[in-house]
Deep mutational scan, measured.
Amino acid sequence: DLSALRVEEVQNVINAMQKILECPICLELIKEPVSTKCDHIFCKFCMLKLLNQKKGPSQCPLCKNDITKRSLQESTRFSQLVEELLKIICAFQLDTGLEYANSYNFAKKENNSPEHLKDEVSIIQSMGYRNRAKRLLQSEPENPSLQETSLSVQLSNLGTVRTLRTKQRIQPQRTSVYIELGSDSSEDTVNKATYCSVGDQELLQITPQGTRDEISLDSAKKAACEFSETDVTNTEHHQPSNNDLNTTEKRAAERHPEKYQGSSVSNLHVEPCGTNTHASSLQHENSSLLLTKDRMNVEKAEF
């Protein structure tokens, strides 16, 4: 173990290094160091905050020279020094078990990766560091076993998940096959086929009936047209017969005018059967003409 005197000496050296690497504005270890034209180094955030307070150039807090945003430059070497100082402080805390008085939040800088452990060898070769390295080497064999167990647990979990997924996939297939086998029997399929065939026959029977009705309507229309044509021909046949009657009536009127007047009046009210309204109107006109002729003949006879 380190003596108290040596611990104090190391602590004083760390404090001196820390004062050199402090920012003059925030009085902390410089984060993202930036250098000016006057070779003074500050935190990048502190300098941008200072420049944004005034429009135009501002003055350096140490030498009062003008500073602009374009004049600022990043210093990589200074950032490396800060990183190495942080590593020294971490090693000091691990070796002594004491917390550094002016320690900052170094938890963000710590890294437990194997590459980081290899890099620590180049920091300080001390008894405390050696003991700590031995402890780490002793704890390393235990870690692979834990990793193997965790991997086995994960693989077993994956296997159970896969088996569950396969079961879920197989179950719908089985149910679907069961439904297909038990849903419709052979008799049901035959009945469905016969039902479809009967429906098709009914459709075939319905369509000819409609065509037959249309044919019957067409035949009825044709018969009505033929009947009207026969009526017209009958009226045409009746007209010459009426003319013959008129000639006979004229002759009778010349011989017996008194008797014919009474008979002509009675004939006005008689309509021949089986004739249309057109034929009756023609008869009325003929009878009126005959009456006028008879009157003329009677007057001539009187004179």
Rank of each mutant, 00 (worst) to 15 (best):
D1A: 08
S3R: 15
L5D: 09
R6I: 06
E8A: 07
E9S: 10
V10S: 11
Q11P: 14
Q11L: 08
N12K: 14
V13F: 03
N15S: 09
Q18I: 11
I20C: 04
E22V: 03
E28P: 14
E28G: 10
E28L: 08
E28H: 11
P33H: 10
P33Y: 12
S35M: 05
K37S: 01
K37T: 08
C43S: 15
C46E: 12
C46R: 15
L48M: 03
K49D: 04
K49P: 02
L50S: 04
L51E: 12
Q53F: 03
K54G: 12
K54E: 07
C60E: 15
P61H: 04
P61R: 09
L62M: 03
I67W: 06
S71W: 13
Q73K: 11
S75G: 13
S79K: 13
Q80T: 14
V82C: 08
K87F: 02
I89L: 09
C90S: 08
A91E: 12
Q93G: 12
L94W: 01
E99Q: 06
S103N: 03
F106G: 07
S113C: 07
S122A: 15
G128D: 06
A133W: 07
R135C: 13
L137W: 02
E142C: 05
L146E: 07
Q147E: 10
E148C: 06
L151M: 12
L151R: 13
L151T: 13
L151Q: 13
V153T: 12
Q154I: 12
L155K: 12
L155N: 11
S156K: 04
N157G: 06
G159S: 09
T160K: 06
R162E: 04
L164W: 04
Y195G: 14
G199P: 15
L203A: 12
G210N: 05
T211Q: 15
R212E: 14
E214R: 02
S216C: 05
L217I: 05
D218C: 03
S219R: 03
S219V: 13
E226Q: 15
T230E: 03
T230Q: 14
T233P: 08
H238I: 14
N243H: 04
D244F: 00
T247K: 14
T248F: 03
A253S: 13
E254Y: 00
R255W: 01
P257E: 06
E258D: 11
K259L: 07
Y260Q: 09
N267D: 06
N267T: 03
C273E: 13
C273L: 02
N276G: 03
S280P: 09
S281H: 04
L282Y: 03
Q283T: 15
H284Q: 13
H284Y: 02
N286L: 00
L289C: 15
T292A: 04
K293Y: 04
K293M: 01
M296S: 11
V298I: 06
